[in-house]
Each structure stands twice: as C-alpha cells, then as structure tokens.
Design a protein around this nucleic acid. Structure first.
Lengths: 237, 237
DNA sequence: GACGGTCTCTGGTCTGACCATAAGTCCAAG
DNA sequence: CTTGGACTTATGGTCAGACCAGAGACCGTC
C-alpha cells in the first residue's frame, strides 16, 4: 500500500521562515544580528510587506527573532524568555552541544526503557527489520534514514507523545548539523558494525521486554556516539 | 536594587494568539474545531485582516492550527507532525496527563541531580531562602509563586538551558491547568508542611553537592504530587 | 552653545483590492 | 428527466499603498 502525501502548496511566509531558520542553523545569522528593515527585506525577497510580516510575527512567536519598534529586527539574544522555548534548539552557541546531547541522551534512555515495557512483539519485530536493512544496505544515506527510522519507531513505542515530539524536534536540528558527519561514521565498516550491533541489542531487549537492558544498550549507543565525536572533532553536536 | 521591566506594548497579533491559546488550554477549542473565517473573525475582533493573518501564521507555525485554502482554519488534529512540537503541550487529551507528568518528572529529576553538582554555596543558599519564605508566608498565592521560583532556580542551577526552557514551557501549561488545585494543596497545613519539608531536603542535598540525594528527594516530591492528585480526583494534570 | 523644528527612518496597523479555487445554484440544451 | 456549463459566493493567499507614533539626525535660529 503506497501512501500519497496531500499536495500542500507552500506559502510565501513559510519560505521566508525556512530561509531565516536555515541561516540561523548554518550560523550565518547569530544572536543579536540585525535583519534588514522590513522595507528593504521586501525589496530583496520580492514579496509584499504583509507576507514578510506574517513570517516575522511567526518567527517572533517561536522566539527566534525580536522586533523593536523604531529600531529594527534582531536575532534574539536570550531565547530562554520565549514562550516557545524550542527555539533554543536553533540557537547554537558555546555550551549548546553539551546541553543538547545531555537532553537527548536523557530522553532516549527514557524512551528505550518505556518502549521495552510497552511495545508488542510485532512492533519489536519492525525494529529488528529496521536494523536488518541497516546492516544490509550499502547506501550510506539509506543507512542514515534507517537509523533515524529506528529511533522514531522506538519513540512511538514509548507511548508518550511528548517524548516523540521532543525527539522529533531534536532530530530536525540534528539533521541540519551532523548529517555529513553521520555519513563518516557509517563509512567506516568497523563503526558501522558496532552501530548495527548496538541497535540489534536494543531491539532484542525491547523484544524481551527488558526495560533495564534497553536502557543499558541505549546508554552504550551514546557512548559510541561520544567516541565518534571525539574522533571527528570538527563534529558539531 | 529594584529592577524595572522595560515597557513593551503588546501587539495586536499577540493578543489574538494569546486568546486562541487560552481557548485551547481551557478546552473551549478542541482538536479539529473550525475557527471563524478570516473575514468574520476580523469583524468580531475589530482588527484588520493583516493583523489577524499575522496571528494565524504564527499559530500555524507553532503547530496549533492548520489553515486549508478554500476551506477554513482549524485546530490541528495531529500536533505531532508539527515543526514546533511544543504545541502538544497545549492540546491536552486523554493520556495527556500521564505523558505530561512522566516527562516533567524525568526532567525535574535530571535537573535536581545536575543542580547538586553545579550550584555553588550562594546559589544553594538562595534555594534555602526560597523555602524559608515559603514556610513563613501565610498567603497561598505567594506560596505558589515561591514554589515555582524554587523550581526555576533549580533549573537554572542545572546549567542546561534546554532543560530550563523545557521546564519553563511546562510551567506555562501547568499554570493554566492546576493553579486552582495547587491552592488546595497549600491550604492544608499537613500538606504544606510536607511540601516545605521536601523542598528543604532538596535544597540541603544541593548544598551538600549530593546529586543522588537531590534526585531522591525530588522523586519524593513527585510521590507527594501523585498522592495529592489522587486525593483531588478532579485535578487536571 | 542651546533650543526647536523638520526630515527620515523604523516598526505597527489598516484599507481595499485582486487571485485561484471549490462548492453550490441555476438555467438551458440534450 | 438528466446533464453540462455558466454564474455566484465563499474560502484563504497575496499585494500595493496609505497612515501613525516615535526616535534620531540634521539644521537653522536665537
């Protein structure tokens, strides 16, 4: 059964939002940077001021930018005061990497533990098939997709939709930051083998409803991630 | 030294956003509900369509609503697919309560453990002064504020700004849902005593840099919260 | 040098228009 | 009768242009 995604034409303001987010994630826009004035921006983008303001108000609401009347529009300095703190995920800086990984590790361990308690045999089998395909494919990009899919299914299996949502958000940022590096990891057969190995153990533990084991192997997973990060020091996040 | 907050006039679109968020949190707007058409809404609110659309685009970006061209604007059915999954916090439903508490407990335990490792003597003392004032005041609302302040300082002390942000967001929803119930808790002297007691122990553990102890007493805290929730079955979240 | 007006820039708001499209309405041709 | 097409009306998406308030720069007058 093939599923078709409904056609959804992207609105102008969404393109602007995506562009600004991209620039922030890429580090081309940093905390405190000033954006062009609305009227100049409108000229550059070739859109109406109304559309631009839709984009700006959205970015402001999620806490990424800040507009100061009679002054200008700026990338937010203190993202913490925002109503929608996920914006923090975009504003990387010095300690960002550690904070980020710490949170992710915490959530993933919890997810592994919960999934082991709640996933039925069929769901656990789908984890195994994920790992299986990961082991077989020779396409690096496919490997990465399967890796992400594994964690996604695990999160769904935890039964806690908040955890699913948060990890989704994290995955979004990770995609931007470490895609290239993850390719490196998969390209080294040794690393690839260990990754597949660990994922298998997690899946095994989940299938055996072994909550503690699932946590332990997920912990192992992050140990490996740490190790790889140290190897590639240029790795961001 | 008294600090004055800069005057910040609220924009029109922010008021609209706040109103919609409120209606969702209060349950007056549920998943799938249809909002009035833009032109009707404009009449009801007495604002321009441009401002309304700023509000709608912001709400759409954070995943709370969904606009379908030539159809209408609706409260989102599946908040999970959003780019900004914190919207989930607003869309309570059946299992929401458990998921929510599970996540909060996880984060608060981590915060307690980290804070014990990282907070210096002065910061720990500020925790104690919080608890002290909590024990002394007879104003219930003040007690609640001090309770929140305690957890906020603890989060800051963890040094992980992501945790701070997430707990801020959670606090925002909690404020909407359980303010009234928290008053009940504080009104019973026995409960109040135990709450103060537990907070004191957490502060003690933090001051002693006893990470495990801080986690344990925070665990105790959530045990008490669970107990109180069972007593007041009408309690939401 | 000090005062005060003016000019320009900023974001905030509003008005009114146009577009594409879907759904319903109605009428005429078959 | 049914059927097909035209028309109307609703929707959201976009745009152009206008006005406002306020802050700062500029410049002339006193």
């Amino acid at each position: 059964m093939v599923e078709f995604a409904p056609i959804r034409s992207e609105r102008v303001y969404e393109k602007v939002v995506a562009q600004v987010q991209s620039l922030i994630l890429d580090g081309q826009l940093k905390r405190g940077d000033r954006l062009p004035s609305e009227r100049h921006m409108v000229d550059q983008l070739g859109i109406s001021r109304a559309s631009l303001r839709e984009a700006y108000s959205a970015l402001e609401l999620i806490g990424l930018i800040e507009t100061r009347p009679r002054d200008g529009t700026f990338i937010k300095e203190e993202a913490g005061s925002s109503l929608h703190p996920l914006a923090l995920f975009f504003l990387a800086d010095d300690n960002f990497e550690e904070d980020f990984l710490e949170l992710r590790r915490l959530l993933e361990l919890q997810v592994a533990g919960l999934a082991a308690q709640k996933m039925d045999a069929q769901a656990a089998a789908s984890l195994h098939s994920c790992v299986q395909r990961m082991a077989e494919t020779i396409d690096d990009r496919m490997s990465i997709e399967l890796d992400k899919e594994f964690h996604r299914r695990l999160a769904k299996g935890s039964g806690n939709r908040m955890l699913v949502s948060l990890l989704d958000a994290i995955a979004h940022v990770v995609d931007h930051h470490i895609e290239a590096n993850r390719v490196h990891w998969f390209q080294q057969p040794e690393h690839r083998r260990r990754l597949v190995d660990i994922h298998t153990h997690v899946a095994d533990a989940v299938a055996a409803a072994d909550s503690e084991g699932a946590r332990r192997w997920m912990e192992e997973h992050f140990g490996l991630v740490d190790e790889m990060r140290r190897l590639h020091q240029e790795v961001k996040v």
